[in-house]
């Protein structure tokens, strides 16, 4: 397998890896590093790739494990990952401000979810994986995935309703 073939293989899902890493690690830089690390690991073991049944699911699992390890080592070092994506958003329209603000709230609420629920919402609602794929990636049974997903969706909706109604009701 040469470099081009490898890039063709990973390009359909490399963004998914990145988004999942970002969901767990929060910071864009950390997520980029994690994705890079995982893809390089995959490249270094490219001789084994033909043996994998589903390279995408395998890479997703790899990324998940890598991020969990990262989080664990951060916790043991007693360091918090600081969210430092400073963005200069040019906002002109009032509507846009409102929308951005509510999207920001969704993000905040997502960050408060337990890691597993966060991942499931990410995989289902953002990446649109089916339950079988999710259960394979996360090594859980499909029923448990469904239950956790439902719980996460309800939590998000409740919290979002609270913030929406804050100061109104």
């Amino acid at each position: 397998m040469n470099q081009k073939e490898f890039l063709d293989l990973v390009s359909p899902f490399k963004d998914k890896l990145f988004r999942m890493a970002k969901r767990l690690l929060v910071s864009t830089e950390e997520a980029e590093d994690a994705t890079q690390e995982v893809l390089i690991k995959l490249w270094n073991n490219k001789s084994k790739i033909p043996a994998y049944k589903n390279v995408e699911a395998f890479s997703m699992t790899m990324t998940k494990n890598y991020c969990y390890d990262k989080l664990k080592s951060k916790q043991s070092q007693n360091l918090k990952i600081v969210h430092s994506n400073y963005e200069d958003k040019q906002v002109g329209v009032q509507k846009q401000v409102e929308l951005n603000d509510s999207l920001h709230w969704v993000e905040k609420i997502m960050e408060q979810l337990p890691e597993q629920q966060r991942l499931i919402v990410q995989l289902r609602d953002i990446e649109a994986y089916d339950f079988d794929e999710i259960s394979k990636i996360l090594d859980m049974n499909p029923t448990a995935v469904r239950v956790a997903l439902s719980r996460a969706r309800k939590t998000i909706r409740e919290k979002l309703t609270n913030t929406h109604n804050y100061g109104i009701k």
Binding site: F18, R19, Q36, I126, L160
Partner: peptide
């Protein structure tokens, strides 16, 4: 149903984020 608007907008916005870092693939 306003709450769901921001939720689903958030999902579709997030779906568009891409990984743009270069991959230093060395010839092993």
């Amino acid at each position: 149903l306003e709450v769901y608007k921001s939720l689903f907008t958030y999902f579709s916005v997030n779906q568009q984020e891409t990984f743009n870092k270069a991959l230093p693939l060395k010839k092993t």
